[in-house]
Computed example of a mutant assay.
Amino acid sequence: MTDPHDPNSIPMLTDVIVPGRPPLGRPGETHAQAQVETPHEPLPASQPTAQPGAYTPPAASLSGTAPLDAREIEFIAERLRGRFANYLRQDARAVIEARCRDAIEEHTNWLVRQVSREVMSALEQEVAGWVRDAVSEELARHTSRR
């Protein structure tokens, strides 16, 4: 698992991100770095608002800085892609394998319970027949002696 306080960690689906609120900084990260990496800023009141939850790119700037050019956007996208690929090669693999093991174990346990239930049912019926036959034979043998 990754440490959420690690500046190189990848945000998880469980991280809470609130639109319009600056993200919580990670240790060692400056406010400017956090703003460049997560360009979420509320729209000025003069612009129409989008539907709740919809991403709207920043209009002109990020807190007084120049807008990102294509090279910077490409750099950020490549960095995120690299971090995600690294996560998939390492931590995600362990998580996926653990979940697969759990699912296989759960399914195996379910199968064992089902087979056990079927075997017990068949044995109950068979044993009941054996007991009935043994009692009948014993009664027949007991009545023939009289």
Rank of each mutant, 00 (worst) to 15 (best):
N86G: 13
T2P: 08
E105D: 15
L139H: 12
L111M: 15
G20I: 02
V36N: 01
A66H: 05
R93K: 13
D102V: 03
W130H: 15
A140K: 00
S9W: 05
E105Y: 01
S46G: 01
L80M: 05
A94K: 06
S61T: 07
W130D: 14
T143N: 11
I73L: 14
I73Q: 13
P52V: 10
A54R: 15
P48A: 05
P23G: 04
Q47K: 02
A50S: 02
M12K: 15
R21V: 12
T49N: 01
I10Q: 12
E37L: 14
A140L: 13
T38S: 07
V127P: 00
E29N: 09
A140N: 11
Q114A: 07
L80F: 04
E138D: 00
S63F: 05
G64L: 04
A50T: 02
Y55G: 01
L80E: 12
A32Q: 14
E124Y: 11
E74S: 15
R113P: 00
A122C: 04
E124T: 14
E118T: 02
E126D: 08
A32M: 09
R81E: 12
L123M: 13
E124C: 10
M1P: 03
F84W: 04
Q114L: 03
E126T: 13
P11I: 02
R89S: 01
E97H: 01
T14Q: 00
P52W: 08
I73W: 14
G53T: 08
L68C: 14
R21E: 09
R26F: 13
A70S: 14
R117K: 15
L68Q: 15
I10K: 15
A66C: 03
P67S: 04
Q125I: 11
E78H: 07
P4F: 15
E74A: 13
Q33G: 00
D91E: 11
G28M: 06
P57T: 12
S61N: 08
D133I: 13
Y55C: 13
L24F: 03
A98V: 05
R81Y: 08
I96Y: 05
D102W: 05
I10M: 09
G129C: 12
I17Q: 00
V95P: 01
E138G: 02
A98F: 09
R99W: 07
V18M: 15
P4Y: 10
R21Q: 14
N109Y: 06
M12I: 07
G20Y: 00
L68D: 05
S144A: 13
P27K: 03
P57M: 08
S116Y: 02
E37H: 03
L62R: 12
Q33K: 04
H142L: 10
R113K: 14
V131T: 12
T143S: 09
V127H: 04
P39T: 04
W110N: 12
H31L: 10
